[in-house]
């Protein structure tokens, strides 16, 4: 157990520093959220109508950006071999890597999400639910994203390949999260959307590491 904690601390520290870490992720998020009104027009009514959806899509894109080199750096510098040759199952190693990723970039993005949505004109009363959805969604993004990052190991332009693999996996959380927020804004029952988002995240946490470990073993041998 202490070994898992040691790895989690290292992974969170590496994700914090990787490609600028949370600062870049939040900056990218703010940039995409700022582009929306420039393209759509500054009228508050029009912006308010798309605020939630735009903030949610921008969150998915920012999460995608952070995935770059989640496994690749360890693969290139030999650390992955060191992590494989241990008593800790590779599946657990992969899960811990994604958890570190979520702590270092998913959580800061979840804090930024309500700010971006409100800046675009969303109702401030939505802020707690946006935060919650972004936090749970971020977990799903990290664990499905890890599959793409592991599968693209060793490929040239792996970052681009990761995006192509991962975007379809991001569809359900975007639908569920966006649906829950829309329902809440419209005064409709929103719990089912959040429950589905949570279920997807749980499935990703349970199954993702198995796929990642398989992909890592395949890349090494």
């Amino acid at each position: 157990m202490s070994r898992a904690l040691v790895l989690l601390r290292r992974e969170a520290a590496l994700a914090w520093g990787r490609g600028g870490g949370p600062l870049i992720a939040v900056g990218f998020y703010a940039g995409v959220a700022t582009l929306m009104p420039l393209a759509i027009g500054p009228e508050p009514e029009r912006l308010a109508a798309i605020a939630l959806g735009a903030a949610w899509v921008a969150l998915a894109l920012a999460s995608l950006l952070c995935l770059d080199r989640l496994f690749e750096r360890d693969y290139e510098d030999g650390a992955l071999e060191g992590l494989v040759l241990s008593e800790t199952p590779l599946e657990l190693v992969c899960a811990i890597k994604c958890l570190g990723q979520w702590l270092a970039t998913g959580a800061p993005l979840a804090v930024a999400a309500p700010v971006a949505a409100i800046a675009l004109g969303a109702d401030p009363a939505l802020a707690p639910l946006i935060f919650l959805c972004a936090l749970v969604g971020g977990l799903a993004f990290a664990f499905t994203g890890g599959i793409g990052a592991a599968l693209s190991l060793g490929a040239r332009r792996g970052g681009l390949l990761t995006a192509v693999i991962v975007l379809p996996l991001f569809v359900p959380p975007v639908i569920f999260g966006g649906g829950a927020l829309d329902a809440f804004a419209g005064g409709l029952p929103w719990q089912s959307g959040l429950a589905l988002l949570g279920a997807y995240a749980a499935a990703a946490v349970a199954l993702g590491p198995v796929a990642m470990a398989g992909a890592c073993r395949n890349a090494l041998t």
Partner: peptide, 28 residues
């Protein structure tokens, strides 16, 4: 077993103390 390859798995941006502490604890 210990496998000491061409690639040592040490992250350039971390300090020698951080890396050595991690890997030795990881090795038990």
């Amino acid at each position: 077993l210990h496998f000491l390859g061409h690639q040592d798995g040490l992250k350039p941006a971390r300090t020698a103390a951080e890396e050595l502490t991690f890997w030795t604890r990881w090795d038990g």
